[in-house]
Design a protein around this nucleic acid. Structure first.
Lengths: 246, 246
DNA sequence: ACCTGAACACCGTTCAAGT
DNA sequence: ACCTGAACACCGTTCAAGT
C-alpha cells in the first residue's frame, strides 16, 4: 500500500483527483487564495498556519516552503489586495476625476477585505509591483500643475488619505463588545450634560453611530459614504489651493 | 515558614518592601504602566501576558482579574495614549490654530508610542472619557462657521486625518526586512526605466526613503514632518473652501 | 523541489483552590 | 477581593527524514 500523498482530513476523505494528476500539491497562489478567504470570513486572528493547512489538506509546516512565515504571508496578502486596485486608463481625464476614482478604488478594495484594511494602511509594502501605481499618481499630480518640489509632499498627502481614511472608517469596535455594551453606550450619550457638551448634544442625532468615537458599528456594517465624499472634496479643494499658490 | 506573597522571580529575589506594606500586590494602573513600557520598547507582539506577569512578579492569570483579557488590555493601553493628548485651553484662538495644535498633539502622542499607533487609529475607542475631546473639536468647527448639517461630516474628516495620517506615516516595514533587503530595494529604484516611469525617475532623489511605497524606514526613524505639514495645510485650506460655500 | 512526521518552546485562558 | 498552582488547548516554527 503506497503512502498517501496528502494528509487525510478529519472526514477521512482525500480530495478527488489528487492522486491522478500529480503536480506539486501546493502552490503559492492557492495558499494566498484560501488564506484570503479565511481572513475575509473570520478575521486576521483566524488566519492560523494550522487552520490554513487544514483547509489545504496539508501539514502546517508544508506552508513554510511556499510563504516563509506567517507575517510574510500576511504581507503577501496585503499586496494581493493592493493589486485589486484598478486605475483609470484614459490619460486625458481631469486630475480631480483621476484622483477621485483612484481614491475610491482604494476604499473599495479595503471594504472588500475589511480585516486587511489596517494591515494595508499600516504596512504599505514597497515592491516593484507598486511602481506603476506610484508613477501614475505622480503623473496625475504633475499634470495638475504641481512643481517637482511639491510633488513628494503632495503625493504623500494623497496616499495617506487614500489608505488612512478607510482604515479609520473600518476600525473595529473594542474587543469585549457584547450586545449589551452598545446599548449602554448609546444610552450614555443621552445623559450627557447639555451645558458641559453644548455642541455635542445639539448635533447628537446626526452624530449617533455616524461620527468617530460616537459609533458602535464598524464601517463594514455602517459605511460612512457621505463622510468620505466630504473628506475627498476637502482634499481636492485643498490641493487646488496649493497649486494656485505655486 | 509562611508562603511568600509573591512569586519569586528568576533571580530568586522578592521585591523589597513587598511583605512590609500589604496592599493588593497588583493594580490596574501598575499593569498598564508596565505594559506600555513593554510595548514601547519591544513592540506589540512582545506584550505577552506571561512576559508582563514576569515583570510584575506575578503569575500570568493574576492579570486577568484586573484587565480581563489581552485584547482588553490593549484597548486600555490605547485609551492611555489617547489621554496623553492635550488640547489648547484658551477658547479664543483662531480655528485654524486650534485644529493645528490638536492634530499635532495627536501625531506627537502616536510618535511617542509608535507601536500603538495602528491600534489607536484602527480602534478609536468610544468612551465617555473621550467626550471632551469630541465636544471641543465640534465647537472649534462650529466656531469656524460650519453649519450643524456639515458638522458631522467635517468632524469625521478632521478626525480621520488626525489619526490616520500618523498611522500611515508610522507604518512598519515588511516582516522579513533584513539589512540587505533595503539595499536591494534602494538599488532596484535606480534601475527603473525612465521611459516607463518618467515622473518617478525624474523626481526620484526627493522621493527616496521619503515617499510612501518608496521608503525603507518607518516614520519612527525617518519622520515625515514636511509631508505632514503640507497635508495639514491642504486640509485647512480645503476646510476653508467648504465653509465659504456654506 | 516539495512534503511528512514529530517535536520544541511557547502562547491565552480557565478552573479549583487558597487567603 | 485578589492571587497561586496547575492544567488545557492551542499556537508558530524547526529539524530530520522521506520521495
Amino acid at each position: 500500500v503506497p503512502a498517501p500523498r496528502r494528509k487525510s482530513r478529519g472526514s477521512g476523505r482525500v480530495r478527488p483527483g489528487a492522486s491522478a494528476t500529480d503536480g506539486p500539491a501546493l502552490s503559492r497562489e492557492a495558499i494566498l487564495e484560501v488564506a484570503l478567504q479565511l481572513v475575509d470570513r473570520d478575521g486576521l486572528d483566524a488566519l492560523t498556519m494550522r487552520a490554513l493547512a487544514d483547509r489545504l489538506d496539508v501539514y502546517p509546516n508544508a506552508l513554510y516552503w511556499h510563504v516563509g512565515s506567517r507575517s510574510n504571508l500576511i504581507g503577501a496578502l496585503s499586496t494581493v489586495v493592493f493589486d485589486e486596485i484598478e486605475l483609470p486608463t484614459s490619460p486625458d481625464v481631469h486630475w480631480r476625476d483621476w484622483l477621485t476614482t483612484m481614491i475610491e478604488q482604494c476604499r473599495a478594495a479595503m471594504h472588500r477585505h475589511p480585516h486587511l484594511a489596517q494591515v494595508l494602511s499600516s504596512q504599505l509594502v514597497p515592491t516593484t509591483r507598486a511602481m506603476p501605481f506610484v508613477e501614475r499618481t505622480l503623473a496625475a499630480l504633475s499634470g495638475a500643475g504641481f512643481t517637482d518640489d511639491q510633488l513628494p509632499l503632495v503625493y504623500n498627502s494623497v496616499i495617506a488619505f487614500a489608505f488612512g481614511w478607510p482604515a479609520v472608517e473600518l476600525s473595529s469596535m473594542p474587543a469585549g463588545a457584547d450586545a449589551t455594551w452598545h446599548e449602554e453606550f448609546a444610552a450614555s450619550l443621552d445623559t450627557l450634560s447639555s451645558t458641559a457638551f453644548p455642541t455635542l448634544t445639539r448635533t447628537l442625532p446626526a452624530l449617533r453611530n455616524a461620527a468617530f468615537m460616537l459609533r458602535w458599528e464598524s464601517g463594514l456594517t455602517a459605511p460612512l459614504d457621505a463622510g468620505h465624499a466630504m473628506a475627498l472634496k476637502i482634499l481636492l479643494d485643498g490641493l487646488e489651493a496649493q497649486v494656485a499658490t505655486a
